[in-house]
Structure formats: structure tokens, C-alpha cells
Amino acid sequence: MSTMAQPRKWEYVFWPLFATAIFIAFWHYTVVWTATKIFPSPLEVERGFAELTHKGVLYHDIVDSLRRVAVGYLAAVAIGIPLGLMLGWYPTVNQIVNPVVQILRPISPIAWIPLAIIFFGVGDYAAIFLVFLGAFFPIVVTCVAAVSNVPLIYRRAGRNFGLTPARILSRVVFPAALPQILVSLRVALGIGWLVVVAGEMIAVTSGLGFLIIDSRNSGKRYDLVVGAMILIGVIGLVLDTLFRQIEKIKPVRWGFRDES
């Protein structure tokens, strides 16, 4: 859908740069005009960044955050997908389990922090547990929906060719549900990334979330706060973009035709 003629090639580069430049200029001059001492200007953020990189702190914080996300997320995938497939496959079981899932799901992973600390103590495992919780429920719920959305005729075709239930699940239902499952995995990865940052602000003493809260508490270094936020945004974007590459492979491409 477009309102005007197809944009020219240069416009694809020009407009984003233009808007970003305006944004940064606006930020810079607001800081200058209001003469605030606390909120950093873009230049100060850049300097703060350089300082952190020199110290090598930044690298460790990034690796710590990524490691927690990776472990918690993979655990959620490894448990959530089989469980979701099973619940979708046996609607009677799902009816029984669903209410419990629905009550647990809206509990913010952050609200689990006190319990996470009881279970695992302050440290990596508490943060990993929070990431797991944040990613687990969306994956399970979408898998159930994805399986029950598989058109009846695919299942019938599978039965017709004499497949056992296990093979129908692996050769028909799973591939048919895969595009939807992949979307939920991407969303869950995003949630994992949101949660780890929040978890690190409370439950551990390293990582990008800790960097934010620590920079603020020890000496009001808001240049580092904003710098860390931008870094979180960029890494999140990179994770999302990488994941979208998976959605382009051929056996699932059919499920994404409507999306741009």
C-alpha cells in the first residue's frame, strides 16, 4: 500500500538517515538549551561508551547477558515445544491444564524474582530462570494454538496414507505448525531479551541490566545508562534480524507469504 509513486532508490537511504539525524540533533539541542547537568547529550553518551570499551567492562556485560538469555531461552524451547505439541495434540489434556497455564502466564517474570532468589540464590541461575519463565509460556500457548490450527485435511491425508499417530505428529502436524511456532519463538526471544535486562537490574551483579542500574546508583552516570540502553536496543534488533533469516528457508517460507 502506498500513497505516492514508488520511492526512488536514494530515498531508502536518505529518509532514515534524515530522521535519525533530526532525532539526534533534537536530543543534543534540548540538552544544550535546558542546560541540564544530569541528562547526557549524544556526545557524552559516545564518550561514555568509549570509556567502557577501553575498560573491557562492556564486553563482559554483553557476554553475561547473552549467555543468560541463551541458556534460559533454549531451556524454554526444549521444554515448551514438546509440551505445546502434546497439549495441542490431546485437546482433552489441554482442557485440563489450560486454566493453570492461563493463571501463571500473566504473572510478570519479574514478580518471580523473590522466589527465584529462594530457589537459586542471587546469581546466574536466578536470571536464567526468569528468562525461562518469560519465554516458556508464550511458546507453549502458541504451540497449542498452532497445532489446533492445522487444517483437518492435512491430518486426514496423513491418516489416509497409513501413518501412525507419532508419524502424523512428526511428519504432518509439526511441519504444518512450524511457521506459527517460529513466529512465537522469535517473539519469545524478544521477551527473553526484555526479561534478562530487567532481571539483571535486581537479581545479579553483571550484565547490561546491572550496568544500567549500577551506573545510576554509583555516581549518576546517566551517559552510561543511555549508552547501555542503546546497546540493548541494537543487540535486540540484531537477534531479531538473525531470527528472521530462519523464516526465509524454503520448507517454512509458505507460512510467511502475507508478511512483508
Binding site: 541528562f39 519479574i110 524478544g190 531479551w193 526484555l194 526479561v195 535486562v197 530487567a198 537490574m201 541490566g209 544500567i212 542500574i213 551506573s215 545510576r216 546517566y222 545508562v225 543511555v226 547501555a228 540502553m229 542503546i230 540493548i232 536496543g233 541494537v234 543487540i235 535486540g236 534488533l237 537477534l239 531479531d240
Partner: peptide
């Protein structure tokens, strides 16, 4: 870029 920033990361600000 703004989207993946946890809303909680905005707490100091």
C-alpha cells in the same frame, strides 16, 4: 532500535 529495550531499562530515566 527502541523496541527491544526493556521498558524497565527506562527506570533510571
Amino acid at each position: 532500535i527502541l523496541r527491544p529495550i526493556s521498558p524497565l531499562a527506562w527506570i533510571p530515566i
